[in-house]
Design a protein around this nucleic acid. Structure first.
Ligand SMILES: [Zn+2]
Ligand SMILES: [Zn+2]
Ligand SMILES: [Zn+2]
Ligand SMILES: [Zn+2]
Lengths: 160, 160
DNA sequence: GGTTGATATGTTATACTATAACACTTCGTG
DNA sequence: CACGAAGTGTTATAGTATAACATATCAACC
């Protein structure tokens, strides 16, 4: 219960986002006996550079310029690892990936996607939209995709 | 406020699903001055055959065997039309399409996707998961994607 | 009835997203 | 040193989606 506020739209100390996420990933890999290899670490760092979602091929292009891999499976494997470990989330709506903004908390993510600037803010998912229906039908939820598209406060101004 | 119950998992008179959906589409097109052409109608009928999501190329294959088109744009255009008019929903998680189960109501859809049998049940979305976060950040929601993956009541039995 | 413009369809080509399969390396274990 | 597990490199291909242009259809207008 530390920081359930969505992160992405408001001005904030982004360096702390980066360092916190890298530290959390480091710690989690150590605790789970997993290798946080250069490709994996660099992939996470690339996604952490901004609160935007990047496609796998965008990430791959970056990796390529740095000599860390040039073929799709390299990027997809690194991204799959990061998603499995919860350091990165996949945005279904965009076929893209974004670094987790709450790496220190167990959570089901939910996202607000600004169609103006491309920023993706991560919020805590509240089991609202489907919990009741699942209850009444007996459906057993294993994973949820909750993504809203719209305009962030900044991008609403020009439209007004 | 007629029938907000999710439809898909429970046994039901599926013929009424089909005829209601086609009637609603007919009426809506007439009211909006849009053409409910053979390709569009047949595409909707194909999706209405079951409460499963079909990929665009699955639909295209069906259309092709019936002489209604064999190239991707034919299917994608028909699907785009049906989605725009609200007769069909896109399931982002599956890159697939499903006929609307509540064609007579204005609604933001939410879905329960059974990974066992592939059935997709449509429920009414309740603004739960993101409304609060959107409120506090000032994010203006235009569209929501709410999809849960899991096991339907029927498919839970074998696992037990 | 012929012209015109809007809408829909047919088709080619291509872009974007994702994974299967296999070769090679590295590293820790017995 | 043999061995197996995990990671990476690479080729090839599968799956999803759209741009662009050609053709057809049809209603409105003159
Ligand atoms: Zn930040
Ligand atoms: Zn924005
Ligand atoms: Zn619907
Ligand atoms: Zn099922």
């Amino acid at each position: 219960m530390t920081d359930p506020a969505p992160k992405g739209f408001e001005a904030h100390d982004h360096n702390s986002c980066v360092s916190a996420a890298l530290a959390a990933a480091d710690a989690a890999c150590a605790a789970r006996g997993l290798q946080f290899t250069p490709v994996r670490r660099r992939t996470l760092e690339i996604l952490l550079e901004s609160h935007e979602a990047l496609g796998a091929y965008d990430v791959l292009a970056r990796l390529n310029t740095e000599g860390l891999g040039s073929k799709p499976p390299v990027a997809y494997r690194a991204l799959a690892f990061l998603v499995e470990q919860g350091f990165v989330h996949r945005i279904e709506r965009l076929n893209a990936f974004v670094a987790c903004a709450h790496p220190d908390q167990e959570h089901d993510p939910a996202f607000m996607i600004c169609r103006g600037c491309g920023t993706v803010a991560e919020a805590q998912a509240v089991q609202g939209g489907l919990a009741v229906s699942a209850q009444t039908t007996g459906f057993q939820i294993e994973q949820t995709v909750i993504e809203a598209e719209g305009l962030c406060p900044t991008c609403q101004a020009p439209a007004a």
